[in-house]
Amino acid sequence: MKHLILCCLLLCACVAAHAHKPSDSYLNLVVEGQSVTGQWDIALRDLDFAIGLDANGDAAITWGEVRARQSEIDAYAMARLQLQAGGKSCPAAVTEHLIDDHTDGAYVVLRFRALCADTVSELQARYALFFDIDPQHKGLLQLMYQGQSSTAIFSPDKATQQFKLTQPSRIRQFVDYGREGVWHIWIGFDHILFLLALLLPAVVVRREQTWQAVDAFKPALWSVLKIVTAFTLAHSITLTLATLGVISLPSRWVESTIAASVVVAALNNIYPLFRERRWVMAFLFGLIHGFGFASVLTDLGLPKSALVLALVGFNLGVETGQMAIVAVFLPLAFYLRRTTLYRRAILLGGSILIAILAAGWLVERVFDMKFLPF
């Protein structure tokens, strides 16, 4: 029974997986005197889930369907954003509606203006969009004041935040982007499944066309370190280049290749091609995963005054989240390595499940369709 429990722990990431891009909205606020002007980008898929935009049920939301529900969209969104200054409410009203494309699909854009009673020196924002139906949703804020940019991330446990309109703290920006990096790797299930597919054979070795347990912990640890180091180095390179605008690749191509990388990594455990050179695979595909990380970082709205700081913080956050996964996986895998349960159910069975799921993602992303419920 305890082996079965440990097996479930190892495979939980495989069972709970869903699409790579989490539910986010993008809120930009510009403070000038008593006035706060804003732009709020909200995913149409999230609004459709919350209030139902697809009137004819054809799984394609049109501009006409959005226009027909504009007043309801305004009421739903603005009721979940409250701005205050000096303890007094700053009433906001929508002034313009647009549609924009992000890396993960179409977004409705609400432009609005709020007027405060006095000149704003400290702004309080309470954000509650989708928290009642999706506790993983986040609101990504970029606040502009006198040419200076600061950022914040709203979540259910940080729904109300206070902003002093002075030069933003570099330490706070670093911590915020680091936290976002950790969060992204933990809910970026295609990244996790790619890493797990590479790590599953770390505690076994291929001999006479069968997987056999390694005799000591050191070889397993060395194998893991090579894979993690190669993956980290590769995605750090392309994350930096893409964020700085040196290289740009189409999002659909990147996301499709990421799904393909998961398929290849999983199938390699069934029909070994790279054998003990899985670190090579980690490096080559890690270059593509870096572009996926960069799309998230770009959507966060990088502060020009602290670009390097935000980039380093996000990257370190990704590595921290990644090492936490490894720290949980490796001891459990090493403990179970000699069992048939690990070699058959976890290594081979888990790899098959990962390959099937990633193949579904690949078809969705290549053909721009949606049939998986996650």
Rank of each mutant, 00 (worst) to 15 (best):
A333P: 02
L141C: 09
G64P: 01
H20F: 12
E96W: 05
V263N: 00
L198V: 13
I133V: 14
H235Y: 04
H20W: 14
A79M: 00
L198R: 01
D24E: 15
P272T: 05
L330Q: 00
L239V: 11
D157G: 03
F189Q: 06
H18L: 13
T62R: 09
V264Y: 09
A242E: 12
E255M: 08
Q84G: 04
A282V: 03
H184W: 09
R80K: 05
A55R: 02
T339E: 10
I171K: 09
I227P: 13
F291H: 05
F314N: 05
A114P: 08
G64N: 12
I288V: 15
F174L: 15
P91M: 03
I153H: 03
F291C: 10
Y145G: 09
F285V: 08
T166K: 08
L44I: 15
C90S: 06
L29V: 11
L199Y: 03
S251Q: 05
L29R: 05
I354D: 04
L239Q: 12
D368P: 05
W253F: 15
T240V: 08
A260Q: 04
L353N: 13
T119H: 04
F329I: 09
L244P: 07
T160A: 14
R126I: 05
A68D: 13
I61Q: 02
L129E: 00
L221V: 12
S150N: 02
L309S: 04
A85H: 02
T257Y: 08
K226M: 15
T339L: 06
E319H: 05
G87S: 02
M281I: 06
Y177N: 08
I5G: 06
F131Q: 03
R111N: 13
H18M: 10
F293W: 07
I354Q: 02
K21H: 15
Q322F: 02
H3W: 06
L6T: 10
I187T: 15
L332H: 08
Q148G: 06
L284S: 11
A327C: 07
G350R: 04
V326C: 14
D215Y: 07
D48E: 06
L372I: 12
N28V: 13
G33I: 05
Q84M: 10
E255I: 01
W186E: 15
L309P: 02
S121A: 11
D46E: 06
T160E: 13
H20C: 08
A16V: 10
T298N: 11
L336R: 02
Q161C: 06
S89W: 00
C116S: 01
P272K: 01
W211G: 14
G290D: 02
E364Q: 13
L332D: 07
L44N: 09
L357C: 10
E65K: 01
I237G: 12
Q209S: 13
I185E: 07
F274N: 07
P331A: 10
Q209W: 04
L98Q: 13
Q39E: 14
L316K: 01
F217W: 15
N56V: 13
P303V: 08
N269H: 11
I99L: 11
L199T: 03
L357I: 10
L267S: 12
F163V: 08
A59V: 10
M78E: 03
A43W: 00
